Amino acid sequence: MTVNKENPARPLDQGRLDDLLGRYVNDLGATISAGNVILGDKLGLYRALAEAGPFTSAELATYTGTAERYVREWLAGQAASVYISYDPATGRYSMTAEQALAFADPAGLDLSGGFELAAACLADGAMIEDAFRTGRGVAWGTHHPGVFTGCERFFRPGYVANLVSSWIPAVDGLGERLAAGVTVADVGCGLGTTTRLLAESHPASTVTGFDPHQGSVELARAAARAHPAGLCTFAAARAQDFPGTGYGLVTTFDSLHDMGDPLAAARHIRGALAGDGVWLIVEPFAGTSVAENLTPVGRSYYSFSTFLCVPHAISEGAADALGNQAGEAPIAALAAEAGFRRFGEVAQTPFNRVYAARP
């Protein structure tokens, strides 16, 4: 033990202090590394390494039309992060297949998107500080634009990997009904990744994405025009009052916890569904208590929730926002109070839990 000069009654455990300092160094490096990841993504440095490397710093700078001295520093930092690989014998940098999948392939894991989202959250620090002091909310649409695009990139790989292949088949009869053709409302659709996936994989169904943020709706429409493989449309509407009835499927992907009145949303969804319809609820992975969520995933989600989810729900009038680590119990209670007779978890990943509710 080491004496705590500020408070001798509380001796310091040097091992615990060293562990804390180690975590601090890792976190500090990760925080500033975010900006470097974003630069590598925007400047095409990762893609160049994956497609044409190995490169020295001079070779990569020439290939990408960037300045060598900046590239040299960037490469060393990325190698220290183990996001790229370095060969000391040749002085060249490269990417393994795994590193390329993570950072150089837009259709891969696209981990740069998570850093884009985190950096955009930090750019909004003044607004969140004011919210802490005043209790006021911060509406989604007032955030840095990188929040919208970064959020879509952060969640897209999980949706692409799981929605069609495992989540829909996990709900009894849902895949067959979508193949035969039903109307679908994708509520809180953001930039429309899930809307397009549903439409492209089930062309007999008609899919509409609804989101209260007009800017996201416009971005979703633009993306749909670029990928016109399925029948889908987009409109600005809230979960509490999106139009239409008789839906065979209503979906909420990582959005229920953001709502100011999730019970009103659940009741409206119940009324909008056909008698044999399904509400597919995808939420961030969470346990039943804070103690169960003290994990690396929980840490990331609580941090994002502080900047995004809770402030937006409060901006819509929430008295006690759910937050993205609410867990199953409050969602099940909402479904029951809204009139759903059947509710249960049907699938999960390390990042999401998937529930189905039926009238």
Rank of each mutant, 00 (worst) to 15 (best):
N7C: 11
R10Q: 07
Q14A: 15
D18Q: 12
R23F: 06
G29D: 11
G29Y: 11
G35E: 02
L39T: 15
G40K: 10
G44T: 05
Y46A: 02
R47C: 02
A52K: 15
A61K: 01
E73L: 15
A76W: 07
A76Y: 10
A76S: 14
S85T: 10
P88Q: 12
Y93L: 11
M95L: 03
A97T: 11
E98L: 09
A102W: 07
A102V: 09
D105R: 14
G108F: 08
L111C: 06
F115R: 14
L117Q: 06
D124M: 12
I128S: 13
A131D: 06
R133W: 06
R136P: 00
G137V: 01
T142K: 04
P145L: 14
G146M: 10
V147N: 00
F148H: 10
P157C: 13
P157K: 13
Y159C: 02
Y159H: 06
L163M: 05
I168M: 05
P169T: 02
V171R: 03
G175C: 07
E176L: 09
R177Y: 05
A179D: 08
A180V: 06
V182E: 04
V184M: 05
D186V: 03
P203S: 08
D211P: 05
Q214I: 14
S216F: 02
V217D: 00
A224L: 06
R225I: 04
A235K: 04
A236W: 06
R238H: 15
R238F: 13
Q240A: 15
F242I: 00
F242Q: 00
G246E: 02
Y247D: 02
G248T: 05
S255C: 08
H257W: 00
D261P: 04
R267A: 11
I269E: 02
R270H: 13
L273R: 04
G275K: 08
G275D: 11
T288K: 13
S289L: 13
S289D: 10
N293I: 07
N293L: 08
N293M: 07
V297R: 00
G298P: 00
Y302N: 02
F304L: 03
F304I: 04
L308F: 08
C309N: 05
V310W: 00
P311D: 07
A313K: 07
I314Y: 03
E316H: 08
G317M: 13
A318M: 09
L322I: 11
N324W: 03
A332N: 05
E337F: 14
R342D: 08
F343M: 09
A347K: 07
A347D: 09
T349A: 09
R358A: 14
P359T: 02
P359N: 03
P359Q: 03
